[in-house]
Measured scan of single mutants.
Amino acid sequence: MEVRTIKVFTTVDNINLHTQVVDMSMTYGQQFGPTYLDGADVTKIKPHNSHEGKTFYVLPNDDTLRVEAFEYYHTTDPSFLGRYMSALNHTKKWKYPQVNGLTSIKWADNNCYLATALLTLQQIELKFNPPALQDAYYRARAGEAANFCALILAYCNKTVGELGDVRETMSYLFQHANLDSCKRVLNVVCKTCGQQQTTLKGVEAVMYMGTLSYEQFKKGVQIPCTCGKQATKYLVQQESPFVMMSAPPAQYELKHGTFTCASEYTGNYQCGHYKHITSKETLYCIDGALLTKSSEYKGPITDVFYKENSYTTTIK
């Protein structure tokens, strides 16, 4: 009895394709271990004539594949690729409408935090270190965002349907971005203890939790000093293409032309909904596939993004 075979390709990165001759009487799992086709788990399936010449994702289970996976995804987590594939199996079914010149995501599976993050990423200057993220990001900007969303979920250790947080998501993504040249110098002034300067680099240099107003941050924000008295913390120097200011959701007025974009969060910790506000020729609110415009805006804002380049204080 002759062994019926077909020729397929296996890959971990969709760049390096490895030619395989597979036995049609055995499952993919018996031949390769966990195997995925377009995100779908085909591990328990036997090869079919229609699979001839198709590319299958496999887990990096030998040295060659491990090197290829690390170079593309910059992670050695053995569960990463499987999590990416199972997320992709959902995100490829989502709709990605162009809204006001940006790629958004039609609401499904509690994905409003991903839509808000995706919209924000198209408006701030950011370059990702893992080629996987950078490639998928370019495709997302062009309207094909399924891979990018699935990668975000995998890097953030999230599953489809789980509630997510924009600030946490951005923080994970910033860790995989090139923020080497970003720098922030802060000064804390206390009447009792004097003053202390701190220099922050990388992710810490672009994120701040405690106030939404970048102007206020430049002037000074009140913080408790270690001595128990009130101290003032203010920005001395900022070198970065953008800054992200966050605070627990509270009524906040966004003035046209003073910011790049913002995240609105309605609801409580267990259950809520994100919308995205962007400042173009007027203010726009993007909620999944829905767009509304207004000249002014007041609502429960939790993150505001500002364009920056270089700032030095005039406070002496």
Rank of each mutant, 00 (worst) to 15 (best):
G257I: 02
N49F: 12
G202E: 05
Q20Y: 10
T198Q: 13
V12Y: 06
K229V: 07
L151E: 02
F56A: 06
G39H: 09
C156G: 06
K293E: 15
T64A: 12
G161Q: 05
T199I: 11
S295D: 15
S294T: 14
C285K: 09
T159M: 12
D77Y: 03
C271L: 14
A250E: 12
Y252C: 09
N16T: 09
C271R: 12
S295H: 12
V42T: 10
R4V: 13
L102S: 05
E204H: 13
S86E: 15
F174T: 03
N89Y: 08
T192K: 13
I152D: 03
Q123R: 02
T43L: 06
Q251D: 13
K298N: 14
G29I: 03
C285V: 13
V243W: 00
Q230C: 05
P131K: 07
T313D: 13
Y269T: 15
T292D: 10
K255Y: 08
T192E: 15
F56Y: 09
S104T: 09
K229S: 15
A250S: 11
A140Q: 03
Y274S: 01
Q20E: 11
W107G: 05
V166H: 06
L102F: 09
F217C: 06
T116N: 09
V236C: 08
E162N: 00
K233E: 10
K92C: 10
G288R: 01
V22L: 12
L121A: 09
L200W: 06
G161A: 06
M244P: 02
Q134T: 12
L65R: 07
Y208S: 11
E68H: 07
A247F: 03
M244A: 01
P78W: 15
Y274G: 00
V58E: 05
F174P: 00
K218T: 06
G29N: 06
L119W: 01
T211H: 12
N14R: 13
M244C: 06
R167Q: 00
A177I: 03
Q175I: 05
C225G: 00
S86H: 06
C227F: 01
Y284I: 15
Y138S: 12
Q98L: 14
M209V: 13
L88Q: 04
F128P: 05
T282G: 14
D23R: 12
N187L: 12
Q195N: 14
D23L: 14
V166D: 02
T232I: 15
D180L: 06
T116D: 06
H90N: 08
A205K: 03
P249F: 00
G33A: 05
L114S: 02
G194Y: 03
C271M: 11
K44G: 13
Q237K: 15
M244H: 04
K106Y: 14
E168T: 11
R83H: 07
T91D: 04
K316H: 15
G257Y: 02
V3H: 14
C225F: 00
A150K: 02
T313H: 15
V67D: 13
